[in-house]
Each structure stands twice: as structure tokens, then as C-alpha cells.
Design a protein around this nucleic acid. Sequence first.
DNA 1: TTGAAAGCGCTAACAG
DNA 2: CTGTTAGCGCTTTCAA
Lengths: 351, 351
Amino acid sequence: MITIKEIAKKANVSRGTVDRVIHNRKGVKPEVEALVKAIIDQLEYKTNSAGKLLATKKKPITIGCVVPSIGNDFFLNLISGFNAAYKKYSDYGLTIKVKSIKAYRAEEHLNEIKKMIASGIDALLVTTIIDPCIIRCLNENIDKGLHVACVNTDLPTSKRLFYVGPDYYLSGKTSAGVLTLMSKSKQNILIITGSSSMYGHNERIRGFLDTLEDKGIDYNVEKIMEVEDDEETAYIESSNFLKKHKNEITTIYIVAGGVHGTCKAIKELYLDKISNTYINRPYVLTFDRCLQTNDFIIDGTIDATIGQQPFSQGYKSISKMFHYLAFNHEESYINDEIMDARLIIKENALF
Amino acid sequence: MITIKEIAKKANVSRGTVDRVIHNRKGVKPEVEALVKAIIDQLEYKTNSAGKLLATKKKPITIGCVVPSIGNDFFLNLISGFNAAYKKYSDYGLTIKVKSIKAYRAEEHLNEIKKMIASGIDALLVTTIIDPCIIRCLNENIDKGLHVACVNTDLPTSKRLFYVGPDYYLSGKTSAGVLTLMSKSKQNILIITGSSSMYGHNERIRGFLDTLEDKGIDYNVEKIMEVEDDEETAYIESSNFLKKHKNEITTIYIVAGGVHGTCKAIKELYLDKISNTYINRPYVLTFDRCLQTNDFIIDGTIDATIGQQPFSQGYKSISKMFHYLAFNHEESYINDEIMDARLIIKENALF
DNA sequence: TTGAAAGCGCTAACAG
DNA sequence: CTGTTAGCGCTTTCAA
């Protein structure tokens, strides 16, 4: 294994000088720098992370996280991922601060992001809304030296370092793929979405419908319901709607929250109490895989769900940001990380 | 963060003594040991892995790997996982030796395992056949101090430390789950398996049929073909069989290798050359997700495949074994690691 | 039975 | 512009 010491010996300089070259610090004679760099390349020197981590642990790193996890199991799993990564790197001076907020409120998001930044952090991980004020605020702070990355929801027009999360369009396509496995005939679709201002939700719908189109499936979107992830709203509205259109709807496509409420309505309307089996239930497709969703898959209310690995999203985003900060802001850490669409049906639903 | 130094100060002993206590080394007065242990518990001391890794890198660790990867893409991916983990830990004195062998030959397996052990290794990672001679050989070496773990195929009756790989029964169930999404009517099934002496292959069949049974699907297994992962055999045999039974077979269930050969036969028999679409093609279900399989999913020959993350299997097994060896054989590293059954259809098949 | 000290690879502070 | 040195947490060797 090649160490700084060996490089130094080969170049006839001190370890300090090699260190300076490696970190592009000023104060090295150009020809010495060139020589050292050449040797580094030639010997394929790779920094030893244990050594580095040990030596740098004195200056602590704080990562702030702002996520809309209030009343949302998915984000609680994501936060578990944050915590797991924190646990792994706390030895090396990492601290995290997590702020849970409510979804959909741009103003609240902005406020909490500002508060988090003001509290003094080195980097920010955020799941928020595509909103010009928020993006401006983030960009301003990025210019001032804050390191920002997006988790679960990207802000493509911002100056964020990287994005860790799903490809919403692809997950919508996958959902449609399952539907076409089940049936090739005409579908009358009830779509239950979180909010029409959420990019990810819209993308899931777009991917879904595009794929039906591609596959030559005849379909009609009977209604798009916005329930803002509220289970009670989902229950009442879907219940009312399905009562009126019980035998017309062939597919219920639940894009975000509202799974529990909708499934409750489905059970009431389609489950035969005597045989305890569904009669003419529409196809039911959902996203994510929290405990409740899992129960509905097991009991046969949901045909399939698409998981997006919330835990990994949390874990990877912290881990990437930590490495980025700890290892000299190396570019190799700032690539986006797209989770794959995990298709879950009854048989592989076991946790 | 709690360090050995702090423990030592609190206990009024030297760091050496604390180290001795932590590693249960002899030569510490019982009361001192008790005191130090109490302080460790109280302060919730956790060893700092960077420090440990740095200090122990002098004594190199060699892990030997024996896998039946000859002519098998799946295991090449698994080996990539070995190499990725190796790359990560090579800084800390890890070396790996990988021996590729051919599947199904117990004698060859035994020979190569013996050779690998004789070449001088600290630990062995192996994918092999459930065979009494092999198990005896491994157990003898385990008794002599060799550390052994199973990758991809478990040897439950051996003294191996842990197993990293799929749950074959569950993956078979998942496959049947997809089939029942597509159709509830009677299935006439052609099963193409690797070998009837392979535990995993049998389990996949068992899980598949059990699930059809559970779901009240009427089915008949028309034929079980053993093709020993040979594509040519698969092509010839499936081609011959399907020519005779073209319109009877409703499902082709390919348990192991032979996907390429079988798909070639399917294309020849069912693909309409003019419209370039399938006419009355049976359902086709496979396992794993090598490049060829992926192509057949994209082009519509295969309905679904179940992936078992070969790369992760390789990566995790090396990583677990390395940590186990590097960190005092701590028990926390020797739990089994069961991969989940990844359901892949056309829409989420993109790599 | 215990302590002291050196050293793993790297960084940072200080001295020149 | 460059070298020296101390120290991050841990293990190991030597000495007591």
C-alpha cells in the first residue's frame, strides 16, 4: 500500500509537502508540485480513509436535515436511515440535526430551512417543494458556502450538490406495467394524489398514463382526487365517489398518501363479509411500503406497491454528504443516486 | 466520544490494561478487570473503527473464495461484488483469492476447496453443493480454526459462520405470485431446472407450486427438464418439447440457467415474424437478471424475473467476513443475510 | 500483573 | 516555500 511517507521519500520532500500538494494548498514550488503529482499518479496513491478520518476528527461536522415527516411513515423510515448513518460516522465527529415538518406548505418549509441554517450547520439535506423562494434561499446560502443536497424530491434548478431519491416517472411506469400484466382491457381509473403541485406525484401519474398509452391500453381517468396525504379526506372522498361509481371504476391508482383511508373505503364497499373475499374489486396500485400498506398487501386489498427504499435514501444521503465533507469535497461523492423501483406483491411483501 | 484513554484515566490504569480487558486477554487482576468493565459499560464505550483498522493493518488477512462461476453471468456479478469489497478494504491489509469452478461436480468442488485451503487463507467463502464429503471437509477445517461462510447456497448442517444469499422458497413463491396476477385459470407448466440435486432449484419449484396450490390455481406440471445450466441443451430440449406441445403449455418456469436457450426456442415458435409480436406465447418466468435475461424482458419474451442481487451477495459476504476477522470475531457480524426477492418486469428492468 | 512507548496514515500547527 | 512534530484511537512490544 502506497502512503504519503513513501511518496515523500521518492520525491525527496517532507510528508507535509506531499500533503500540501494532495490538497492543492498554496505554497509549493511549481516544479516540486509537478514532481510529487507525477509520483502520486505513477504509484497510484489512494488516501487511506482510516488515517484521514482519525486525523481530521477534531473538527466536527454538523449536517442539518429538514424533511416533511409529520404524519408520514415513509419519512420516519427515511429518518431511521439518517440515524443509522449518523451512528456509523459519529465516531468521526459527525452530528446531525433533524427537523420534521408538515408537507405541502411552502412558507413553513422556507421558515424551517432558514431556522435550520441559522442554527449553524455545515451542510443541509432537504426534502421540500419546488418553490422559487425556497430555491432562492438555498442558492444564496450555497453561495455563502453551505453544502446542500436534496433527498427524495429534487430541486433540479437549484445549485444543490446531489440528489438521492426515486425516479418518479419510472415508478409510475412500473405501476402501469403491473396493471398491464393483470389486464389488457379498458381501464376506468380513479387517481388519488397528494397534491397537484408536487412534482413527484405528477410524474408518477405521467409515467403511469404514458405507459398505458404506449401499450395500447384504452383508459379513461374518471377522477383525480387531491387528498394532501390526509387519510380521513381520502376515506371520505373515495368512499363517496366509489359509492356512486362502484361498478365503473376498474383501477384505483394511489400516488402518495391516503392509502389507509382509501383501502378502508375499498374494504367497506367490495369485501364480501360472508366469504371474506373481494368481489369485483378494482385493481389497486400504490406507492411505498410502510407497515399499513404492507398489511393491505398481505390481506389482498392492494395488488402491488412500488417501494422506494426510504431507509436507503436517508442512509445514503447522510453518508454521501459526510464523505464529501470529510474527504476534501471530492467530486466523486456528488453524483446523484437514483433508487430503483421495487415492485412488491403479496408474496415478496414480508419484511 | 469515549476513548480507551478516558477509560484508562477513569479507572486509574494504563491504556494497555484497558486494551487487555476489552480483548479478554489474560494477565489482569480480577478486580481491576471488573472495574474497567464496569466503566466501559457505564460510559457505553464503542471501539473506534478507524483507530482499530489503522493499528491492526500490519497483519494481513486473506479470504479465499470458491464459486461455480464458469459460464455463469450471475456469479461473475457476484465476483464483482467480491472485488468491490476487496477494493474498499485492501487499505487495511485484506487480500482475496477467487477460484472459479464449474457447477454441479461435487468432486471438483471438494478438490478446489481443499486446494484453496492448502494455499493458506484465513477465511473461506464458498458456494457449493450439499454433499457430505464437502461438509465434512469444511467442518474439519473449521475445527482447525478456519473461518467459513456460505454465499448464495447455504450448507445448513455445516459449522459455517453465516450465510449470505437468497431465500429460494420465497423467490419461488414470488414467481407464482406474478403468475397469478396474470391469470387465475388452469396452468400447464413446463419447468426447466438446473439440477434436481440442487437444493435451491428444488426450493424454487416447491415455493412456486405451493403458492399455486394455496391460491387455488389448478395446474399440471407437464415436464421437468434438467439442463444443468447449459444453454444448448436448454435450446434443443425445450425446442423439441414445445414443438410437440405448442398449444398445451401455458407457463414456462425457468428455475436456473438455460434462459437464453429456452428464449431462443420460444422466439422461434411463438413470435410472429410479420407483426413481430408474440401469438399465444406461454407465460415465461425466470430467475436472476443478467444482461441476456434483461434483453429478453425488454423485448417481451420474459414476463418477469426475480433478481437476487448477486453483486450485493458478493460484497456483503466479503465485508462481513472482513469485519468479523478484523474486529475480534465479534458475534454481531455473523448473522445470516437474506437478500430480498426483486421482482423485475419490463418497466423497471433498466439497469 | 501492569505501564510506557512506538507506530499505523494522515493532518495541522509551528518553525525555519 | 518547506521540514518537523504532535496527535487522532488503537494495538503491540518491551520493560518493569
